[in-house]
């Protein structure tokens, strides 16, 4: 096996693990919810992405077989990570009254979709606020 390919695969694995560690470290270190959200959504997708690329390259170079189904996990994670972050952020601004006070105006007469009181939802809003 060419030494350059081996070196590149090893580097990809270590870089991926480093970004995963940074993502989890950001989650543990940063002081408030919205800041914590930045760590996992970014660092972990690139972390898993580069480890999966390393896995594909490993199958191609070492075992000599074409195995690109790791691409499916990468694609799935890149599609779902923003959705997860979006849902968590929406739930957070709905539940946290202090965060809600900090939001900028929308620039039109309608409010933000999560907080805009549509018929029958105002009671619900009060019920799910953070105690």
């Amino acid at each position: 096996m060419p030494i350059v390919a081996e070196f590149l695969i090893a580097a990809l694995i270590v870089v991926g693990a480093f970004f995963l560690l940074v993502g989890s470290f950001a989650l543990a270190k940063l002081p408030d919810m919205m800041r914590r959200l930045h760590g996992p959504t970014k660092a972990t997708t690139l972390g898993v992405g580069s480890i999966l690329i390393a896995s594909m390259a490993y199958a191609a170079v070492v075992r000599g077989t074409l195995s690109i189904h790791e691409l499916l996990i990468t694609l799935f994670l890149f599609l779902t990570a923003p959705v997860t972050a979006f849902m968590v952020a929406k739930a957070h601004i709905l539940r946290d009254r202090r965060e809600r006070a900090k939001l900028p105006p929308t620039g039109s007469e309608k409010g933000w979709a999560t907080l805009d009181p549509s018929p029958g939802s105002t009671d619900e809003l009060a019920g799910f606020e953070r105690k």
Partner: peptide, 30 residues
């Protein structure tokens, strides 16, 4: 908050995926 815990669990799942892939490479078990 409960949302911090949800986010931590989600990150843990991603870590677990990476762990599985690395172990698959280490043991050569596709």
């Amino acid at each position: 908050d409960v949302l911090d815990r949800i986010l931590a669990l989600d990150t843990m799942v991603i870590n677990a995926i990476a762990l599985i892939v690395v172990i698959a490479m280490l043991f050569e078990a596709p």
